[in-house]
């Protein structure tokens, strides 16, 4: 039994099948890449798993428990964490307070415990001066804070939705190292949505490829990128 199990999960928006009959599993300590062209259904898949969007059909189980009908806050409390493609840090809170939110509401800490835990997590993530307001952070610090915010919910599995977007090569390497460190220290199962193939190659143990909402290939990175269906999805009909 995997930590997270999706069975025949679909999501339709009117006539559009955004996620089509997807079977997917994620185990603790495993880093899985979720790739595919724009509009393939990667973010929708994360929305279904985190409970932001309800499924049209299929079941989602977490540690053997059916969570298909559970709300997003309940899933966060169970141990499903995520970041967002478009980051929404709370501008009116300090970095420390932004990171406290998950400790308080997903892990049930009181404010004092959460403040202490937030300080420790910020330090571990390399975020200095957590008393600053968000507008004073640089892009790398904002990305680190986004990951710290997701970690504050105490996840067993974590989905990172294009967390490297907007970072330069050096910053990307720093975040890759950080994610690897976090995943191994906490035995986290991590799902990584990413367009930069170098990141997927370095970071992940296996990859699934989505196109038009359906999984068209899965396996190790080297095998998947040679798959004719994947090449066609990315490069068009004349690719092979």
């Amino acid at each position: 039994m995997a930590t997270l199990d999706l069975e025949s999960v679909s999501r339709r928006f009117g006539g559009l099948k955004a996620v089509d009959n997807v079977d997917f599993s994620l185990n603790e300590g495993e880093i899985v890449g979720i790739i595919g062209p724009n509009g393939a259904g990667k973010t929708t898949l994360i929305n279904l798993i985190s409970g932001i969007t309800p499924v049209s059909s299929g079941t989602i189980a977490f540690e053997g428990e059916d969570i298909t009908d559970m709300g997003p806050h309940g899933r966060a409390q169970l141990g499903i964490g995520r970041t967002y493609q478009l980051i929404h840090p709370v501008e009116h809170l300090t970095v420390e307070e932004n990171v406290m939110v998950g400790f308080v509401f997903a892990q049930g800490m009181n404010m004092k415990q959460a403040r202490e835990a937030s300080k420790q997590l910020c330090a571990a993530m390399g975020i200095e001066k957590p008393g600053r307001i968000v507008s004073q952070l640089n892009i790398l610090e904002v990305k680190k804070m986004e990951i710290a915010h997701a970690l504050s919910t105490g996840p067993k599995i974590l989905f990172l939705d294009e967390i490297m977007a907007g970072l330069n090569a050096d910053e990307t390497h720093q975040v890759i190292a950080l994610v690897q460190k976090i995943a191994s220290e906490r035995s986290l199962g991590v799902g990584v949505v990413e367009h930069v193939m170098g990141v997927i190659k370095k970071l992940t143990h296996r990859v699934i490829v989505l196109e038009s909402g359906a999984i068209i290939a899965s396996g190790e990175y080297e095998d998947v990128v040679k798959n004719p269906q994947v090449l066609e999805a990315y490069l068009g009909g004349g690719a092979h």
């Binding site: 409970g51 806050h73 966060a76 929404h88 709370v90 009116h92 809170l93 939110v101 308080v104 509401f105």
Partner: peptide, 26 residues
């Protein structure tokens, strides 16, 4: 302003999706 309501209300105002996936029962 001093309690968990401050974190909850400010996060809800900022973005409800983020609030929900942070464990807040909006």
């Amino acid at each position: 302003q001093k309690s968990r309501f401050h974190l909850a209300l400010t996060t809800i105002r900022n973005n409800e999706r983020v609030a929900m996936t942070s464990g807040i029962n909006i």
